[in-house]
Design a protein around this nucleic acid. Sequence first.
DNA 1: TATGAATGAGTGTTCATTCAT
DNA 2: TATGAATGAACACTCATTCAT
Lengths: 222, 222, 222, 222
Amino acid sequence: MYYVEGASSYYTEGASGYAREERMTDEVTPVTGTDEAPDGAPRLRADAARNRAKLVTTARDVFTTEGGDVSLESVAKAAGVGIGTLYRHFPSRLDLLEAVYRDEVDVLRETAEKVVPNHPPVEALEIWLTAFVDYAATKRHIFTELVEAVGRESELMTHSREVIYGKAELLVSRAQEAGEIRSDVTSQDVLRLVGGCTMMPNFDREQTQRILRIVMDGLRPQ
Amino acid sequence: MYYVEGASSYYTEGASGYAREERMTDEVTPVTGTDEAPDGAPRLRADAARNRAKLVTTARDVFTTEGGDVSLESVAKAAGVGIGTLYRHFPSRLDLLEAVYRDEVDVLRETAEKVVPNHPPVEALEIWLTAFVDYAATKRHIFTELVEAVGRESELMTHSREVIYGKAELLVSRAQEAGEIRSDVTSQDVLRLVGGCTMMPNFDREQTQRILRIVMDGLRPQ
Amino acid sequence: MYYVEGASSYYTEGASGYAREERMTDEVTPVTGTDEAPDGAPRLRADAARNRAKLVTTARDVFTTEGGDVSLESVAKAAGVGIGTLYRHFPSRLDLLEAVYRDEVDVLRETAEKVVPNHPPVEALEIWLTAFVDYAATKRHIFTELVEAVGRESELMTHSREVIYGKAELLVSRAQEAGEIRSDVTSQDVLRLVGGCTMMPNFDREQTQRILRIVMDGLRPQ
Amino acid sequence: MYYVEGASSYYTEGASGYAREERMTDEVTPVTGTDEAPDGAPRLRADAARNRAKLVTTARDVFTTEGGDVSLESVAKAAGVGIGTLYRHFPSRLDLLEAVYRDEVDVLRETAEKVVPNHPPVEALEIWLTAFVDYAATKRHIFTELVEAVGRESELMTHSREVIYGKAELLVSRAQEAGEIRSDVTSQDVLRLVGGCTMMPNFDREQTQRILRIVMDGLRPQ
DNA sequence: TATGAATGAGTGTTCATTCAT
DNA sequence: TATGAATGAACACTCATTCAT
């Protein structure tokens, strides 16, 4: 993972990865002794929760490496479970895509929440954009299918836009208020610009770094 | 289509579109009276050539609007021919994808050849990048499938890279030599940056314009 | 429930329903203090017995309303138990179907035993046929699957035929001996005639009544 | 096939069977040289038409003998074609069921049209009812699925009811007007009565004959 | 040559059944 | 013992590709 000089090595791929697993498992296995998760859904058994988490991360990996049109059978096999298990957790292909996507968005939200209080504006933005590049890469393969299925105005999409645009706006305007990036640019422009890089197949980390540098330079007040 | 101040309205969408059709038909119906095309392939009958051309342009349109996973049956129907005719011209799905892609690359090559002698470096680059945005948008849906099938080192990919990188390098280095854009940037960085924008679903022309502006600003010597 | 003029309102739907539940519970919870039921099978705990009974009646209801192709998962859920519990009592789908069917047959047997000593021949027949209509309606959805699985000559089918044909024969021949219905008719003809009506989807009680009337008229000596 | 004394042996199973094949083929291959069937649908190629017809009759047979829950793969195999061919002609399971059902209804309509001008009322009714028994037997397995899918008020169901009820009404009222069957009976009662017989599994021809006799006797003025 | 019918491997999904908790 | 998670065979359906017309 790319990170700027001065950025804490805290934000490494490994760390993010770990955080993600962590979060997912937490989500489904509260530490309390109640029989219900906080949102009222029945609590999953430990092994079921593990399977669910494994499926989401495996699906993300497979979608990212093999493309969005892999068979669910492959995903199940890669996760080491039967196809029936996949379907128990995700009753349709769409449900799996949605879970993967929602997970990615959550990671972005958390990254923003960690980075804002701990870094100066431009640095924070750059770190977050680096994360955005990574997670947008995952999204590339599943987004179209997802949008076509659930619709642009679904709760999923509305929520995700809200989170991502919200965090981007927060980070960009913070940098703009500090006078460190030009003001004739919207946070969405920045997202598009950066996100776009990841959409081209086969980008390598070094190139991304160089590109992000160009973008940050282009963003500075002229 | 986007064009910079002072740029000739020559480079309009309509003009590009026309050029594409024109070129394609030419390609398959040489003006000579022989029974063979210059490369030794048997010459196509006029209607067959028309069918072939129709199929390629239809496929491009369908892939662009419906996504890369449409059935060939749909493509054939949209082109007004039977599936058998499609297969006569393109013995496999891949052959059609390849033809569409090759066509797109050709258009880019021609645009570069027209723009270099007629415009100052940065302007020429900006025009060509605008064209690149348009044509990359088409490519988005078929590229992954294509690469996965033919491999990154196939003749198709090698040739296309050669053409596109070549033209990009030509245009970028020309601008760099004129001292008008920074020198710590490669032409491929530029391509990735610009191309990426079009990969995000739902980009509108105005946003693209704004983004291209940021890119051009980012490219100027700091 | 349909009943002829003069027939005691004794034989109401409610009464039958009650009898069914009653009998089932009895079957699995003998009054003795031994650890075994009379047939040597281990005695069920009270709650297990209740589960078993609940499953059979629920299954009957679900099969009747939703059709014979509902999933056992649905049946279990409708009965308020887990699928594992269902399988503990009925090790295969077939076992459940069989239990439901056997239960229905038992009800018919009991009805015959009540009606014979208490009504004149034709009246008794008509009452029993009315009951037969009701219970055959339940059977409609599961019979085919059952027959295909256990075979026409299985103990289940032999036993059921014996019971139903036996009771029908008893009632019909009693009426024939009384000279009140024609003698060139077998009890099985009567069953088929009456049972068939209920097999057609969407029969209403009034139409059934009219049809039963026709049948009874057709049965009288010409 | 059952037929009463005096009824022409014309109406044998073989004859009906033959008529059915005949009709279906006619339907899709008009004798004229036009490219369209009378209803505007494109004409089927001879072999395709043969396949289609084969599929419908095979499906009928398989549904009747094996039940309505056979796999379409089995049907295709029984018809000697690939599953793809089945789906070309019947894009969904439902379409096949519908075709089979529609075909059966057509046969009933034709039988009525043949029998009315050629037989005295009661005889005509009895012949038609015999046919009705045969064809209702086929329907038994597919009707529920069909109704649940297309709805009771679909064109298919409305049309079929219209045809069958219409013909039954015609035949029954003709017999009632001739004073040969009782007037307190509706044609639908008769249908239900007769149709019901076929709904019970495993009816044999002789029993049907005996039952039809009872019905006819029951129908006579008392 | 153009057409579109036929093919069958592959995919999403369901559900009876088994088994770990 | 009761539960429900896991399993995988089976089915409806799609689509790239072949081939008869």
